[in-house]
């Protein structure tokens, strides 16, 4: 027995024990983030939940009961899904082949800049531009009529298709840039290896790229879906806000700011969040099926 061991067992100091568990002075850096999250996200969210459960009249669930008993209200869920789901699917599916092509290009940055423009312009400016471009006297209809492809202008604004086009334009760059980063994250040698082993382009895509991309595509889908589901300005400006494009955000807005029932507005917002959550959880659960590790084929 050595002298040290014979004495009281030398325990490391509290500071050392804490840092071994990942707690040290650096941990304090998360505090500002926690404060902001609590103040700007958790508190307003809980406030909204509580607000929605304190209706103007009736029992605590009266707002929810009201929403699900009026087709005028609960149909907004389907109107929104009917816009957001097809738009998201198209954006993600179109982004894949384009990302595969762009991956091989040298001047990616120019193209990326062009694609990011609609995102930076904002939905209102895009909606305004589309009103002019797709309107009855806009370039699109005029060109088709000039080419004698149509006799009368096609109605593309103030209906479903106007909102649809706007969501594609603002949502595609987002989906594309995410997809591109996933596609370029796959080591090119993996595809080359598949090729030398006899896999044709199609097999390389389905057997190698798709399984490696799937988790990323699922995340892309979720983010793009949330963005499309919360459509509001373009549904009013480009759509038929009292008809087919009366999306759920409009219903919440009308309840809160036209009927001055903030409790009902909060309830609709909660419902909107729950619908998004259901779709996202359903899609994310698909991720369990796929491999979710780094997309590199060995030591770098």
């Amino acid at each position: 027995m050595s002298a040290v061991a014979a004495g009281s067992p030398s325990r490391p100091s509290l500071r050392k024990r804490l840092s071994a568990r990942g707690l040290d002075a650096t941990t304090l850096l998360v505090l500002p983030g926690i404060v902001v999250t609590l103040a700007l996200f958790v508190y307003p969210f809980l406030y909204g939940v509580v607000d929605s459960l304190v209706p103007k009249q009736g029992p605590w669930f009266a707002n929810y009961l009201k929403f699900f008993s009026e087709p005028f209200q609960y149909d907004t869920i389907f109107a929104t899904l009917w816009l957001a789901l097809p738009v998201t699917i198209i954006n993600v599916l179109v982004a894949i082949p384009i990302a595969f092509r762009v991956r091989l290009m040298r001047r990616q940055r120019l193209l990326t800049t062009i694609l990011v423009l609609p995102v930076t312009l904002g939905t209102v400016l895009v909606a305004d531009g589309l009103l002019n471009y797709l309107g009855p006297r806009g370039w699109f209809n005029r060109t088709l009529m000039f080419l004698d492809l149509i006799d009368h202008p096609i109605r593309l604004t103030n209906n479903y298709w106007g909102v649809f086009a706007s969501l594609i334009i603002t949502g595609f760059p987002f989906a594309f840039l995410l997809t591109l980063s996933y596609v370029t994250g796959i080591d090119p040698a993996i595809e080359q290896a598949a090729a030398t082993l006899g896999a044709k382009a199609r097999q390389r895509f389905t057997r190698i790229f798709l399984p490696l991309l799937a988790p990323g595509l699922i995340v892309t889908f979720c983010l793009a879906f949330v963005q499309a589901f919360s459509v509001f300005p373009s549904a009013i400006l480009l759509g038929a806000p009292s008809g087919p494009t009366r999306v759920i955000a409009i219903a919440a807005y009308q309840a809160a700011f036209e009927q001055y029932d903030h409790s009902m507005g909060a309830a609709i917002a909660i419902i909107m969040g729950l619908v998004q959550l259901v779709v996202i959880l359903a899609v994310l659960s698909l991720r369990q099926v796929f491999y979710r590790g780094p997309a590199a084929g060995g030591k770098g």
């Binding site: 080591d187 040698a189 993996i190 080359q192 290896a193 598949a194 090729a195 030398t196 082993l197 006899g198 896999a199 044709k200 190698i208 399984p211 490696l212 796929f290 491999y291 590790g293 780094p294 997309a295 590199a296 084929g297 060995g298 030591k299 770098g300």
Partner: peptide, 20 residues
Amino acid sequence: LQPEARGFGMVFQNYALFPH
């Protein structure tokens, strides 16, 4: 010929195994 039609076995510097 395309690489897939040659039927050669190739070992890459970083192995390029299919990670999934």
